[in-house]
């Protein structure tokens, strides 16, 4: 796995050239990207085989744009864990014939995430799962998926859930713009507090309120991601 460590607009591990806060990548091996303290950063990624990307971001008051092109007959498993403050993340994914994206996103903190997936060609599949924990911050998930006319046999599956721990409001907008008649599409959106029955079960074993919340939220965020053992270790180091 190649590890890119981008701090303050500079890549520290591979000396990759970053111009105008923009990075172009054609990934040839599985990739781990860690973004820290960046301002208005843009990454363009091309995927031509079956690959995995694991992204961790810790950014404040910034805008992150990621454009991913998944070529014909290619699959991408994209795991993204973010801990941001006042961040806007725009992620655009283009799918081409027989390609597939599995997108698993877990976040804590204030974030507006705009995910757009374009199904540009036939036999494309997208699986999207977003989990957010919001304390006294606002979270907003906008998920737009587009199936164009004559793009046949495409499958869309998305599920988003935000757990509110504090006094706030959050938004999930699942938008599926489908112009073909043989698309299979499902979605679910849930915004809720921590489940009282789960809390009762944990607390009835002597675990304090705060520790019970920690157990539930950690599990909710971390287990949403589909990580390999190596990726899990990287995340544990980070958390």
């Amino acid at each position: 796995m190649n590890i890119l460590n981008i701090v303050d607009g500079k890549e520290l591990n591979n000396n990759l050239k970053i111009k105008n806060n923009k990075l172009d990548l054609e990934i040839k091996e599985d990739l781990y990207i860690k973004l820290d303290s960046i301002k208005d950063f843009k990454i363009n990624i091309k995927v031509k085989e079956d690959k995995r990307i694991f992204l961790i971001s810790n950014i404040d008051n910034s805008k992150l744009e990621i454009n991913i092109e998944i070529n014909k007959n290619s699959n991408l498993i994209f795991n993204y864990y973010s801990k941001n403050k006042n961040a806007i993340c725009n992620i655009n994914i283009d799918l081409y014939e027989n390609s597939k994206i599995e997108y698993y996103y877990s976040t804590i903190g204030t974030v507006t995430k705009n995910l757009t997936i374009n199904h540009n060609d036939k036999n494309t599949t997208s699986i999207v799962r977003n989990h957010g924990i919001s304390n006294n911050e606002k979270q907003e998930f906008n998920i737009i998926e587009k199936i164009y006319k004559n793009v046949s046999n495409s499958k869309l599956k998305q599920a988003s859930k935000i757990i509110n721990l504090g006094d706030n409001y959050s938004t999930i907008r699942p938008i599926m713009l489908i112009s073909n008649d043989d698309t299979e599409a499902t979605h679910s959106s849930i915004i809720c507090p921590v489940n009282n029955d789960d809390m009762l079960y944990l607390m009835s074993r002597g675990i304090s309120y705060n520790d019970s919340v920690k157990l539930l939220t950690y599990g909710f965020l971390v287990n949403n991601l589909e990580l390999t053992e190596e990726e899990k270790k990287l995340l544990d180091t980070y958390i």
């Binding site: 009762l200 074993r205 002597g206 675990i207 520790d211 599990g219 965020l221």
Partner: peptide, 19 residues
């Protein structure tokens, strides 16, 4: 008994005994 998504049984048992 509750089924709890995302919380590993052994981590839960450890947390309970630790508490």
């Amino acid at each position: 008994p509750r089924e709890i998504e995302g919380v590993n049984n052994i981590d839960f048992l450890k947390a309970a005994v630790d508490s």
